[in-house]
Design a protein around this nucleic acid. Sequence first.
RNA 1: GGCGCUAUCGUCUAGGGGUCCAGGACAGGUGGUUCUCAGCCAUCAGACCGGGGUUCGAAUCCCCGUAGCGCUACCA
Length: 487
Amino acid sequence: MSGSPPDAGAPRVRFAPSPTGWLHVGGARTAYFNWLFARRHGGTVVLRIEDTDVERSSAASEQGVLDDLAWLGLDFDEGPHEGGPHGPYRQSERLGLYREAAERLREEAKAYPCFCCDEELEERRREALAAGRPPHYDGRCCALAPEERAARLAAGEPHSLRLKVVPREWRLDDLVRGPVVFPEGVVGDFVVLRSNGLPTYNFACAVDDTAMGITHVIRAEEHLPNTPRQLMVCAALGRAAPRYAHVPLILNRDRTKMSKREGQAAAAVGDWRRAGIVPEALLSYLALLGFHPGDEREVLSRAELLECFDLARVGRSGSIFDAGKLRWMNAHVLHHAGGAELARWAGEALPAAARALPAAARERLLEAVRGNLATLLDLPGELAPFLDERPALEPDAAAVLAAGDARALCGELAAALEGLAEWSEEGVKSTIRTVGARLGRRGRELFEPARAALTGRVHGPELPRVAGLIGRERCVRRLRDAAAGRS
RNA sequence: GGCGCUAUCGUCUAGGGGUCCAGGACAGGUGGUUCUCAGCCAUCAGACCGGGGUUCGAAUCCCCGUAGCGCUACCA
């Protein structure tokens, strides 16, 4: 089948966020693709925290990222909190491993200490650029005489460690983009261990991916140009490189990379969470931004995605994040959700009075109003007519009640409803009709005042249903209040 | 500058040589919806970056441009 992993055996994938901010929607999609791929093929999902940038990393940020992932419902088999046989899962706790690997490269003369300082490097870079040469490291510390190198090392001179790049072309068979070739000579000797002893991204990443037995690296396209460096590290270490799948970027409206540093609006998963978007909708939107199921379904649940996700059906071009479509999808998901699900998503945002209801009643109520929800934020307002003793009268509704003999109609309705033999949606409906017929009103001029009196609003679920939910006693009281001009 | 990636309606996309005067969805227009709507239904408008090839035939394959983006750090 086309969805099977290209290699035999259960895949091991990883999601490797750096805890330097909040979880980005692009990161969420990457995490989801990894998760879908592994779960679909009976594989393992590893969470690895890439916190080698001590300046920008923070525990609070890590927690924030973890919270967002949990909110999305993406779980991991191995990670800092899950544990596992390849730990630790924070790069800051794996420093010994990197030093060990670096030391071996140095012993095998595949890497060498570099004593050049930032200023010199920067100056030479500029010169090279100005002269039209590639701004690569010129390799001067590689050419140092063994005695000089030993002496400077012995003197404790600060230095980084650079990988000696083997002159050859590097190619990879990317799972979403196909074969990609990097010609010889486009990367210079690069730093693997910084002078502060911490590994660089490309080094730590390659060391960890191989040490953790990762079989498939699914990540954003921005990492594609880094891949040859990681391939070089794997080769120098004598370890087999994983397979790679570079998924396209999520873009701003101006087609630049949706960045968390530019402070672009709503690039954070948390922003959408706070905006009342449900995880199921965000995940579906994100997955379909780049992945196509092969048929014309436009919203896919996690279960449906699990059945059809295939890296071969991930597109190759970047896509603009369309908040409008996300909102549409959110509304769609909300309109089709069950009451229990809605209650779970709403959580603390659900009004206390609704939470206090018996589960069955709460679910019936939520299912009655779901058609009017665009986001979870609409919940309190939509629920108010059913939960509050005297729901506030909105201006539109007040105008309806003030017009013509709307109040008289309310009085008639109150009397008729009070005497209704059996309180049911059907009974309410026919009673309203009967009263309407007697007064020569139907359609909107009949239902609108009733709705205004009953809910204080001019929109909402079908009126008989509303009445059923509100109950006879409150219906009659609200109609009487309206008739008497008390509401 | 170098290297890489990408290129179909405003946006997300389908399409992989003829079935495509290009299909679906969001947004937009219009109409409808034995009570309302942000709901639902119907309907309209809207695109193959350009130029060369290959071919009986190209949105689809090849080449060259162009444009956008990404990377080119002792950030990730």
